[in-house]
């Protein structure tokens, strides 16, 4: 069992599909970042999901998906010191990606929230 279930979390959406959970995060976060399946948050929780995995930030709260085989996917939010650290970490990763793209002379493909479809962005 992951440490998530022992943490103080709030359920924003429950027993839904992964796609609906991702869309919820995209629509209800101030910032959205995309990571690969298996990305680890809160020390030992590897995110299960259909790529692209959306992570949302709203203030200091991290918004993420949590999938249980018999119950479907949940959207959870945690707002504490650890969530702030996780948001900083994913922001830093995003900055590194942009810097790496610039060094290669490419236009950076930011995964921050925009008006385009994230599903299409992932498929590029």
């Amino acid at each position: 069992m992951s440490c998530i279930e022992q943490m103080k979390y709030e359920i924003l959406l429950d027993k839904t599909t992964y796609k609906a959970a991702r869309e919820y995060i995209e629509k209800n976060s101030d910032e959205v970042y995309y990571v690969s399946p298996g990305y680890k948050i809160f020390k030992d929780y590897h995110i299960i999901g259909v790529p692209p995995i959306a992570l949302g930030a709203k203030g200091n709260a991290l918004i993420f998906t949590y999938t249980k085989p018999c119950y479907g996917t949940f959207v959870l939010t945690i707002d504490n010191e650890d969530s702030t650290k996780e948001i900083d970490r994913v922001r830093e990763m995003e900055n590194e990606k942009v810097i790496a793209s610039l060094k290669k002379g490419k236009t950076p493909e930011s995964s921050k929230a925009s008006s385009t479809s994230y599903q299409d962005m992932w498929k590029k």
């Binding site: 599909t17 992964y18 796609k19 690969s36 399946p37 298996g38 299960i48 999901g49 259909v50 790529p51 999938t67 249980k68 085989p69 018999c70 119950y71 479907g72 996917t73």
Partner: peptide, 15 residues
């Protein structure tokens, strides 16, 4: 047989 099962398989496919 449900979306969660598909989600686990998608994860397996990626990792």
């Amino acid at each position: 047989h449900n979306d969660a099962g598909m989600t686990y398989a998608a994860t397996m496919s990626a990792i």
